[in-house]
Design a protein around this nucleic acid. Structure first.
Length: 191
DNA sequence: TGGGCGATTCGCT
DNA sequence: GCGAATCGCCCAC
């Protein structure tokens, strides 16, 4: 098993369609709490479902900045969702973190989520941010430095793709990526 | 296993 | 004012 190495900013210097599947199996921690990324979605600036599609606004400004930073937004007035900005400054593309397999800081996550079932701790974008304690306060922070920690996948991973979830535009694009067979996906992939 | 619904805030038209 | 990159809970099958 190769030694996992830290992900640096240059990792995000590529198309979301390369970065997104490469993040599956990587380890994502916030203040030492988190786990293995098992599900993400790619959003591209030419994509009607992307927040950046309609141009830069105050809310999505981080998406238009350099890659390797966190774009956090409020979803449905209730949840926080976290994205990793990709490609180059101005390209306004990002990867949405949708699910983790919890491995670090289980007690803290259970406390924040008030549930006993570990499988449901981080299996969804809103659940994940609640378990880790991520809010808009982290909007614009870099991923290659504390309080974040990102470690690359150590070996190979069996990755599957499918349509994204919870959107109404460009619903057929297969830009959702997941770790095949994981129990921690927000929803199963159709085979 | 899957669909319907209410909660609740904010950006944008 | 509208609708959203969601969740949890209920119900039917």
């Amino acid at each position: 098993m190769p030694k996992p190495r830290r992900i640096r900013k240059s990792f995000f210097d590529r198309s979301v369609h390369e970065v997104a599947p490469d993040l599956i199996g990587a380890t994502f921690l916030f203040r030492g709490v988190g786990g293995i990324i098992v599900e993400v979605e790619a959003y591209h600036h030419t994509d009607p479902a992307a927040h950046s599609f309609g141009g830069e606004t105050q809310r999505n400004a981080v998406m238009f900045g350099p890659p390797g930073y966190a774009y956090v937004y409020r979803s449905y007035g209730i949840h926080w969702c976290i994205n990793l900005v990709c490609e180059a400054a101005g390209s306004a593309s990002a990867v949405l973190l949708r699910a983790l397999e919890p491995t670090e800081g289980l007690a803290a996550m259970h406390r924040r989520r008030h549930i006993a079932d570990t499988r449901l701790l981080c299996s969804g974008p809103g659940r994940l941010t609640e378990a880790l304690g991520i809010t808009v306060a982290q909007n614009g922070l870099a991923f290659d430095a504390p309080p974040f920690e990102l470690r690359a996948r150590a070996g190979d991973a069996d990755i599957i793709a499918g349509p994204r979830i919870g959107i109404t535009k460009a619903v057929d694009l297969p830009w959702r990526y997941g770790l095949k067979g994981s129990r921690f996906l927000s929803k199963p992939f159709k085979t």
